[in-house]
Amino acid sequence: MMLQKSETLRAYSLLSPTLIIMAIGILVPFGILIVMSFWTQVGFGFDMTPTVANYEMATERPIYGALLKRSLWMSGMATVTTVLLCYPMAYFVAFHVHRNKMLWIVLMTLPFWTSYLLRVFAWKVVLGYDGVINSALMNIGLIEKPLEFLLYSQAAVIITLAHAWAAFAILPMYVSLEKIDRSLLEAATDLGDGPVMRFLRITLPLSLPGVMSATLLIFIPTTGDYITPALLGGPDGVMIGNLIQKQFGAVNNWPMGATLAIILMLSIAMITLVFLFATNFVRKRIS
């Protein structure tokens, strides 16, 4: 008994720096956010009588729901693109690179050593009206006028997000692919599975945890992304993060901003739960 108690105590004391930071950095602001979402902005100050008026407004006015849907869709597209593009890369390094693996991993994360903002700006240069892609296409005579849809569009935001978050997809997928016991693959071959069946029955199911964590790692932060749509989205590429920022900035309605942030969080949490249940179900079915 005594020993057990001191074990728990030790665990908690080891955890305590993290717990304190969690409490100060996450729980307290989250509490403020929840409380504030029930207030009303009056001029420069707040009316602190609790009311659900903000939530009512968020459901009544079409802009909020539409931007939320658009954000989830754009971030979903970016997530799918990233995972599909990064899986082969992670697969290659895990199975076909035998020397200097660490170097490969470092090289793949190299672009992420520059600031996020700089990478977004770089995409603006690449996609711009007189940017790299348009100049190249015009030089080889494929187009006569620059393609305008490249920049200031939802596509521009999705492309940029997919590139900016690639490292977060490669690393977890690499780890789960690397862990796969090679003798299972040999066994499958011995029992007559071709390369495709072997991949579908062994590699893919066993690497699913990596794919899942990659999906969540990208989907959750990109849904609320602010800077990419602000710089590359144009009028049609605005996301919910931009609207939330405006509430705390020019619009000056902090309680509404808090409400929108909470609604965004709840939506992401719901989608994540559905996703987790669905993948668990699929995993059970195929294994």
Partner: peptide, 8 residues
């Protein structure tokens, strides 16, 4: 104005 800019 934010609503209008976002297309609503």
């Amino acid at each position: 104005f934010e609503e209008i800019k976002a297309g609503f």
